[in-house]
């Protein structure tokens, strides 16, 4: 059983004239780490909301097709049930933070799951450590900087150890090193907790080397679906208006000039290795 199965799914928000997503078909397997990207308005947030039940239970409209999450048909499953295994971190952390201290914020979801005090305490410490916000534990979330708030939001969601984690532009307010740490954390969560993770992002430089699969959306539809190395070189990606990582642009330019680097590097280290390999081959 795939973790998420979407079949001919279309959705139109109430009062809107156009389909926010149209005829979506795709499957997500357990343990996949997927990036969904596309220009503003392409339907990525709509799709994410269809996974945790916000659509159709919170956002009403015209719903067609089927979305099944861990075997549950979303339109027939209440959000509180889906919340046991799907968690979402929103773009704007202020939309989900509310408690008087960071500790309380993180504990809230766990209390709602009915965990014991000891279990809650253990997960709290673990998550504070993993995200690197131990020094913020007694602070009020609303007093923190935007980036710190984002870390708290991520922490409170990760503490729930969901089977499926959806992150809508999780690093929008984070400094680059923190963003990198979050992505490394995702690998860890995937490995240790078999989490299936969906990340929605516009900035592709950092995330591309972490994900197994990139789904590109445009005007409500999935237009490309494949591995980062397959997808990022395609001309359609630039044409749609997606910010292709500079490293990819560099490799394309080198290929135009006759320097053919066969395997597309996604990080500066990989790039240097590839150039080295090229030069070594040259000397034969």
């Amino acid at each position: 059983m795939s973790v998420i199965e979407v079949e001919d799914f279309s959705f139109k928000y109430e009062g809107s004239d156009f389909w926010a997503v149209k005829n979506i078909n795709f499957k997500l397997e357990e343990g996949e780490l997927v990036l969904i990207t596309g220009p503003s308005g392409c339907g990525k947030s709509t799709l994410c909301r269809a996974f945790n039940g916000l659509i159709p239970h919170f956002y009403s409209g015209e719903y067609r097709g089927s979305v099944r999450v861990l075997g549950h048909e979303v339109k027939e499953t209440p959000t509180y049930e889906l919340a046991r295994f799907v968690s979402m971190v929103f773009q704007n952390p202020e939309n989900q933070l509310f408690a008087s201290t960071v500790e309380r914020e993180i504990a809230f979801g766990l209390e709602n799951l009915g965990l014991s005090r000891d279990e809650i305490r253990e997960r709290l410490e673990e998550v504070l450590e993993i995200i690197g916000i131990r020094d913020l534990r007694k602070r009020a979330p609303f007093e923190l900087s935007g980036g710190q708030q984002q870390k708290v939001a991520i922490a409170s969601v990760i503490a729930m150890r969901p089977k499926i984690l959806i992150m809508d532009e999780p690093t929008a307010n984070l400094d680059p090193v923190s963003a990198l740490e979050v992505f490394q954390l995702l690998l860890k969560l995937r490995r240790e907790l078999s989490m299936t993770i969906i990340v929605v992002e516009h900035r592709l430089e950092l995330i591309s080397s972490f994900v197994d699969r990139i789904i590109v959306m445009n005007s409500g539809q999935i237009v490309l679906d494949g591995s980062p190395r397959q997808i990022l070189v395609l001309p359609e990606v630039q044409r749609i208006g997606i910010g292709v990582p500079k490293i990819v642009l560099l490799c394309k330019r080198l290929r135009e000039k006759g320097v053919n680097i066969p395997s597309l590097p996604l990080t500066p280290e990989e790039f240097a290795e590839e150039v080295n390999r090229y030069r070594t081959r040259q000397s034969y």
Binding site: P176, V177, K246, P268, F271, A272
Partner: peptide, 14 residues
């Protein structure tokens, strides 16, 4: 806690 732009990072590695 910044990173260099991707091209600069590539130059540094190279």
């Amino acid at each position: 806690r910044l990173l260099p732009p991707q091209i600069t990072a590539c130059a540094i590695e190279l």
